[in-house]
Design a protein around this nucleic acid. Structure first.
Length: 156
DNA sequence: GCCAACGTTGGC
DNA sequence: GCCAACGTTGGC
Protein backbone atom coordinates (compact mmCIF):
# COMPACT_ATOMS: atom_id res chain seq x y z
CA UNK A 1 0.00 0.00 0.00
CA UNK A 2 1.13 3.52 -0.72
CA UNK A 3 2.57 5.71 1.98
CA UNK A 4 0.05 8.00 3.64
CA UNK A 5 0.70 11.50 4.82
CA UNK A 6 -0.45 13.56 7.78
CA UNK A 7 -0.12 16.99 9.28
CA UNK A 8 0.22 16.99 13.06
CA UNK A 9 -0.01 20.16 15.11
CA UNK A 10 2.08 20.69 18.18
CA UNK A 11 2.46 23.72 20.36
CA UNK A 12 6.19 24.45 20.57
CA UNK A 13 5.73 25.23 24.26
CA UNK A 14 4.71 21.59 24.68
CA UNK A 15 6.80 19.76 22.10
CA UNK A 16 8.77 21.71 19.50
CA UNK A 17 10.73 20.29 16.58
CA UNK A 18 13.88 20.81 18.67
CA UNK A 19 12.35 18.87 21.54
CA UNK A 20 11.65 16.06 19.09
CA UNK A 21 15.25 16.22 17.84
CA UNK A 22 16.53 16.03 21.42
CA UNK A 23 14.26 13.19 22.49
CA UNK A 24 15.59 9.65 22.96
CA UNK A 25 15.66 7.99 19.54
CA UNK A 26 14.27 11.33 18.29
CA UNK A 27 10.88 9.84 19.01
CA UNK A 28 8.01 11.11 21.14
CA UNK A 29 4.67 9.61 22.11
CA UNK A 30 1.95 11.85 20.67
CA UNK A 31 0.05 12.07 23.94
CA UNK A 32 -2.75 14.44 24.84
CA UNK A 33 -5.01 14.13 21.83
CA UNK A 34 -8.56 14.47 23.19
CA UNK A 35 -10.52 14.71 19.99
CA UNK A 36 -12.22 11.63 18.63
CA UNK A 37 -11.59 12.34 14.98
CA UNK A 38 -7.89 12.89 15.56
CA UNK A 39 -7.75 9.77 17.71
CA UNK A 40 -9.45 7.74 15.01
CA UNK A 41 -6.89 8.84 12.45
CA UNK A 42 -4.14 7.53 14.72
CA UNK A 43 -5.95 4.40 15.80
CA UNK A 44 -7.50 3.32 12.51
CA UNK A 45 -5.54 4.88 9.70
CA UNK A 46 -1.90 5.42 10.62
CA UNK A 47 0.75 2.90 9.74
CA UNK A 48 4.42 2.82 10.66
CA UNK A 49 6.36 4.81 8.10
CA UNK A 50 3.58 7.25 7.22
CA UNK A 51 4.89 10.74 6.50
CA UNK A 52 4.20 13.54 8.97
CA UNK A 53 4.40 17.29 8.56
CA UNK A 54 5.35 18.60 11.99
CA UNK A 55 3.43 21.85 12.45
CA UNK A 56 3.98 24.48 15.13
CA UNK A 57 0.70 26.05 16.27
CA UNK A 58 -0.34 28.68 18.81
CA UNK A 59 3.00 30.42 18.64
CA UNK A 60 4.51 33.60 17.19
CA UNK A 61 5.40 31.92 13.90
CA UNK A 62 2.98 29.11 13.05
CA UNK A 63 4.05 26.78 10.26
CA UNK A 64 5.70 23.53 9.27
CA UNK A 65 8.95 23.08 11.16
CA UNK A 66 10.05 19.63 10.11
CA UNK A 67 9.37 16.23 8.65
CA UNK A 68 8.63 13.22 10.81
CA UNK A 69 7.22 9.76 10.44
CA UNK A 70 4.82 7.51 12.26
CA UNK A 71 6.95 5.18 14.39
CA UNK A 72 4.38 2.92 16.05
CA UNK A 73 0.82 1.80 15.80
CA UNK A 74 -1.65 3.24 18.29
CA UNK A 75 -1.52 2.27 21.97
CA UNK A 76 -3.23 3.64 25.11
CA UNK A 77 -2.32 7.15 26.24
CA UNK A 78 -0.95 6.92 29.80
CA UNK A 79 -1.75 10.55 30.57
CA UNK A 80 -5.47 9.79 30.59
CA UNK A 81 -4.99 7.72 33.77
CA UNK A 82 -2.80 10.28 35.53
CA UNK A 83 -4.89 12.33 37.95
CA UNK A 84 -2.18 14.98 38.02
CA UNK A 85 -2.02 15.38 34.26
CA UNK A 86 -3.93 18.07 32.50
CA UNK A 87 -4.90 15.35 30.06
CA UNK A 88 -6.45 13.23 32.80
CA UNK A 89 -9.77 11.72 31.76
CA UNK A 90 -11.71 10.42 34.77
CA UNK A 91 -14.17 8.66 32.48
CA UNK A 92 -11.52 6.47 30.91
CA UNK A 93 -10.60 3.10 32.39
CA UNK A 94 -7.68 0.69 32.02
CA UNK A 95 -10.17 -1.92 30.88
CA UNK A 96 -11.34 0.21 27.99
CA UNK A 97 -9.01 3.14 27.42
CA UNK A 98 -10.67 5.98 25.61
CA UNK A 99 -7.54 7.64 24.21
CA UNK A 100 -4.74 6.21 22.14
CA UNK A 101 -1.80 7.64 20.29
CA UNK A 102 1.11 6.71 18.05
CA UNK A 103 4.82 7.49 18.40
CA UNK A 104 6.32 10.07 16.06
CA UNK A 105 9.97 10.02 14.98
CA UNK A 106 11.98 12.88 13.49
CA UNK A 107 13.08 12.52 9.89
CA UNK A 108 14.62 15.96 9.57
CA UNK A 109 14.19 19.48 10.76
CA UNK A 110 13.42 21.89 7.94
CA UNK A 111 13.29 25.61 7.51
CA UNK A 112 10.07 27.06 8.83
CA UNK A 113 7.43 26.98 6.12
CA UNK A 114 5.21 29.67 7.57
CA UNK A 115 1.46 29.58 7.65
CA UNK A 116 1.52 32.75 5.57
CA UNK A 117 3.61 31.04 2.92
CA UNK A 118 1.37 27.99 3.00
CA UNK A 119 -1.71 30.14 2.44
CA UNK A 120 -0.02 31.86 -0.48
CA UNK A 121 0.74 28.56 -2.25
CA UNK A 122 -1.99 27.60 -4.77
CA UNK A 123 -1.00 23.92 -4.53
CA UNK A 124 -1.86 23.97 -0.83
CA UNK A 125 -5.26 25.63 -1.19
CA UNK A 126 -6.92 22.27 -0.51
CA UNK A 127 -4.89 21.47 2.59
CA UNK A 128 -7.35 20.44 5.25
CA UNK A 129 -5.72 22.37 8.04
CA UNK A 130 -5.95 25.62 6.07
CA UNK A 131 -9.68 25.40 5.59
CA UNK A 132 -11.65 28.04 7.49
CA UNK A 133 -12.57 26.98 10.97
CA UNK A 134 -10.53 23.80 10.93
CA UNK A 135 -9.18 23.02 14.36
CA UNK A 136 -8.32 19.35 14.05
CA UNK A 137 -4.85 18.71 15.39
CA UNK A 138 -4.27 15.80 13.01
CA UNK A 139 -5.34 15.96 9.38
CA UNK A 140 -4.65 13.86 6.28
CA UNK A 141 -2.40 15.28 3.59
CA UNK A 142 -2.69 14.15 -0.04
CA UNK A 143 0.40 12.98 -1.97
CA UNK A 144 0.09 16.09 -4.18
CA UNK A 145 -0.01 18.37 -1.14
CA UNK A 146 2.94 16.55 0.39
CA UNK A 147 4.93 16.97 -2.80
CA UNK A 148 4.05 20.66 -2.95
CA UNK A 149 5.27 21.14 0.62
CA UNK A 150 8.55 19.38 -0.22
CA UNK A 151 9.03 21.69 -3.19
CA UNK A 152 8.29 24.78 -1.12
CA UNK A 153 10.77 23.62 1.50
CA UNK A 154 13.48 23.33 -1.14
CA UNK A 155 12.82 26.81 -2.48
CA UNK A 156 13.98 29.89 -0.57
C1' DG B 1 -6.84 39.28 24.96
C1' DC B 2 -10.28 38.84 21.35
C1' DC B 3 -13.32 36.26 18.76
C1' DA B 4 -15.16 32.93 15.41
C1' DA B 5 -15.70 28.16 14.75
C1' DC B 6 -16.87 23.99 16.31
C1' DG B 7 -16.83 19.77 19.46
C1' DT B 8 -18.75 18.08 23.77
C1' DT B 9 -21.93 17.88 27.47
C1' DG B 10 -26.11 17.25 29.72
C1' DG B 11 -31.02 18.34 30.55
C1' DC B 12 -35.20 17.38 28.63
C1' DG C 1 -32.18 12.46 19.87
C1' DC C 2 -32.41 17.51 20.10
C1' DC C 3 -30.15 21.63 21.12
C1' DA C 4 -28.45 25.35 24.14
C1' DA C 5 -24.65 26.23 26.96
C1' DC C 6 -20.09 25.83 27.56
C1' DG C 7 -15.15 24.99 26.72
C1' DT C 8 -11.33 24.82 23.55
C1' DT C 9 -8.65 25.96 19.56
C1' DG C 10 -5.74 28.91 17.21
C1' DG C 11 -4.73 32.91 14.33
C1' DC C 12 -4.51 37.61 14.84
Amino acid sequence: MAVQYWLMKSEPDEVSIDDLAAAPKQTVPWTGVRNYQARNFMRDMMRVGDGVLFYHSSCPEPGIAGIAEVASTAYPDETQFDAKSKYHDPKSTRESPRWQHVDVKLVRKTRLLSLKEMRAAPALATLRTLQPGNRLSITPVTPAEWKAVMQLLESA
